[in-house]
C-alpha cells in the first residue's frame, strides 16, 4: 500500500471516531432534553429552579 493510503486511513479513523463521539454526545443531549420536556408536559416540574437537586452536594 502506498503512504497516501495510510494517511487516508488515519484521517478516516479520526473522522469516524471524533464524528461518532460528537454524534453520541449530541444525541445524548437531545434524548435528555426530550425526557425533561416529556416530564414537564406531564406537569412534573422542579420545585425550585435554582437549587442543587440531585447533585450530591
Amino acid at each position: 500500500m502506498s503512504h497516501a493510503t495510510y494517511v487516508a486511513l488515519s484521517y478516516g479513523a479520526a473522522l469516524l471516531l471524533v464524528g461518532g463521539l460528537v454524534l453520541a454526545i449530541w444525541r445524548d443531549g437531545r434524548a435528555r432534553r426530550a425526557e425533561i420536556a416529556a416530564l414537564e408536559a406531564q406537569g412534573i416540574r422542579r420545585r425550585s429552579a435554582g437549587r442543587n437537586e440531585g447533585m450530591g452536594a
Binding site: I25, G29, R32, I36, R45, E53, G54, M55
Partner: peptide, 23 residues
C-alpha cells in the same frame, strides 16, 4: 467543547432522575 456539552448532558440526566423520583 465536547466536555462542556457532555457535562451539560450529565447535569440534565441527573435532573431527569430527580424529577422521576419526585414524580
Amino acid at each position: 467543547t465536547l466536555h462542556l456539552v457532555a457535562m451539560r448532558n450529565e447535569i440534565l440526566r441527573r435532573r431527569v432522575q430527580v424529577l422521576r423520583r419526585n414524580a
